[in-house]
C-alpha cells in the first residue's frame, strides 16, 4: 500500500532521517520504534507531507507528492503526537472536521454518510457523552481521544499514528489499541505507528522498523526486529533485562 524509497530528511546540516526504505502492506501494523531523536516523528511528518525530503514515497503505486491534499487525506489519516486547541470548539466540531476531505471542494458532492461516520467515531472512542464539551476543558487523554476520533471519522485506508497512547490511562490504552486492531481487520487497511512502549509494540504490531539516529537498524516481522541483540545495540542497554525487572515488581 505504501512504499518509502531512500527517504532522507535534513534540518539544515543535521540529517534526521538517512536513506530509509520500507514497505507497509495491507493488514500490517508497522511499529516505528527507537530511542528519542531517532527520526520517528519526522518520518510521520514526511509521509503527511509536512517536511521537505529526498527520495520518494509511493501510495498505491503513485508518488504521494502527486496526490491533492484532500485526495491524500481520504487515503491516509494522521494522528499527531501533540494536539493543542486554542479556541473553545466542541468535541463534535473537531471530530466533524475529519470529514473535510470527503466534501472539501466548492462543487464537491454532499458528504451523505458524514454524520454516521462522526457518530461512529465518537462512540468508538467513548466520547458521545462529551460531544458538546469544549475541547479547552478536556483532559490530555480526552483530547487525544478527540483527535483519534477525528482520524476515525476521516475513514482512511491507512492510519499513521504518532504515539497514540500519549496521555491515555491503561484502560484507554488497551481499549484504543484493541480498537485499532479491530479496525485493521477490515480488508484494504494498514496501520503505522510510533510507539515508545516496546511492550505495546510487541503485543499489537505485526512488523517493525527499528530506527537509530535516522537510520534503519532492523526491519521485518516484529519478533525478528525486537530481539535482545537489536534492542541492546540501539538503546545501549539490556532492554529485556529491564523489562523483566519491571515485571518482577508485580510478582
Amino acid at each position: 500500500m505504501l512504499k518509502a524509497n531512500h527517504i532522507t530528511v535534513r534540518y539544515g546540516d543535521h540529517t534526521v532521517v538517512n536513506d530509509l526504505s520500507f514497505q507497509l502492506k495491507e493488514g500490517q501494523w508497522l511499529m516505528l520504534v527507537g530511542p528519542n531523536g531517532a527520526g520517528k516523528s519526522t518520518l510521520i511528518e514526511t509521509i503527511s507531507q509536512g517536511v521537505p525530503y529526498e527520495g520518494s514515497i509511493d501510495l498505491e503505486g503513485k508518488d504521494i507528492r502527486r496526490y491533492r491534499p484532500a485526495q491524500l487525506a481520504r487515503k491516509v489519516g494522521v494522528l499527531a503526537q501533540k494536539n493543542t486547541v486554542g479556541y473553545s470548539y466542541s468535541v463534535d466540531e473537531v471530530v466533524g472536521l475529519g470529514r473535510y476531505a470527503h466534501a472539501s471542494g466548492f462543487l464537491s458532492a454532499r458528504d451523505d454518510d458524514g454524520k454516521d461516520q462522526v457518530e461512529k467515531a465518537l462512540a468508538l472512542t467513548g466520547l458521545t457523552e462529551l460531544r458538546h464539551a469544549s475541547v479547552l476543558t478536556l483532559s490530555g487523554g480526552e483530547l487525544q481521544r478527540t483527535f483519534l476520533a477525528q482520524v476515525f471519522a476521516q475513514n482512511p485506508q491507512i492510519l499513521i499514528l504518532d504515539e497514540p497512547a500519549n496521555h491515555l490511562d491503561l484502560v484507554y490504552q488497551k481499549h484504543i489499541f484493541s480498537l485499532i486492531g479491530q479496525w485493521l481487520k477490515q480488508p484494504g487497511r494498514a496501520v503505522m505507528s510510533v510507539v515508545h512502549d516496546l511492550s505495546l509494540a510487541r503485543r499489537y504490531g505485526t512488523h517493525a522498523v527499528l530506527l537509530n539516529q535516522g537510520r534503519c537498524a532492523a526491519q521485518g516481522a516484529i519478533g525478528d526486529v525486537l530481539t535482545p541483540e537489536n534492542l541492546r545495540a540501539v538503546y545501549d542497554m539490556d532492554v529485556y533485562e529491564w523489562m523483566r525487572e519491571m515485571l518482577q515488581q508485580w510478582q
Binding site: 509536512g50 484532500a70 499527531a80 494536539n83 473537531v94 472536521l97 473535510y100 477525528q150
Partner: peptide, 24 residues
C-alpha cells in the same frame, strides 16, 4: 465566508488542517 471550514481547521492547528486534507 466560503473558507469558513478551512478557517476552523486552521484555528485548531495548521498541522491538523494539513492532516485532514486542507491545501494549507
Amino acid at each position: 465566508l466560503r473558507y469558513s471550514r478551512e478557517l476552523n481547521a486552521f484555528a485548531i492547528g495548521e498541522d491538523n488542517a494539513r492532516h485532514i486534507g486542507v491545501n494549507v
